[in-house]
């Protein structure tokens, strides 16, 4: 009896998964334009899905691993998103010069006085040292074995993949 139940469950689940799959593909496609929005959508979906699934929490058996597939996928996607910030957005999204344009605009007040706001961050950046070097911010302790092991395979003495 439990087997047929879970079978039915599988059939019920199938179209749902399909729908999710389509949305998944779409969200992947538009990922470049608005990565943030998708994540929110996914989060929403994830919540809804969780609620729907509650009734089948007692279903036991071989197909149990299938139940939270979308949720797991969503979680994995989110994890990936968080660990790898969208570099394209970082580089081409907001440019520091925009901020400068803005404070040009509201600099004049009544044509005679102008507000001098010490915008430390952008001013320092604009007049900072022009140097191509990329200093290491948090040096690792290269005396530790695990740190040394982290680059072990960069050398010919390390492991080679087949």
């Amino acid at each position: 009896a439990s087997e047929s139940e879970s079978d039915r469950k599988g059939i019920q689940n199938a179209p749902e998964k399909n729908v999710d799959g389509v949305e998944w593909a779409e969200s992947k496609a538009v990922e470049d334009e608005d990565g943030g929005g998708d994540v929110e959508n996914l989060l929403k979906e994830e919540e809804e899905y969780g609620e729907e699934n509650d009734f089948s929490a007692d279903t036991a058996g071989a197909l149990k691993w299938k139940e939270d597939l979308t949720q797991k996928a969503a979680e994995a996607f989110l994890r990936q998103q968080q660990s790898a910030p969208n570099l394209r957005k970082l580089v081409y999204g907001t440019v520091a010069e925009d901020a400068d344009e803005e404070d040009d605009a509201d600099e004049e007040l009544g044509g005679l006085f102008h507000v001098s706001r010490p915008d430390k961050e952008s001013k320092q950046k604009a007049n900072a040292l022009d140097c191509s070097k990329f200093p290491v911010e948090t040096p690792q302790d290269w005396d530790l074995d695990e740190v040394m092991n982290s680059i072990r395979d960069c050398f010919v003495t390390g492991k080679w993949e087949a």
Partner: peptide, 18 residues
């Protein structure tokens, strides 16, 4: 000109960072 920028997570361990 705009570059396509893809992050490659360090799949193989022991080969440094991202």
């Amino acid at each position: 000109i705009m570059f396509k920028i893809e992050t490659k997570p360090s799949h193989e361990e022991l080969q440094g960072g991202e």
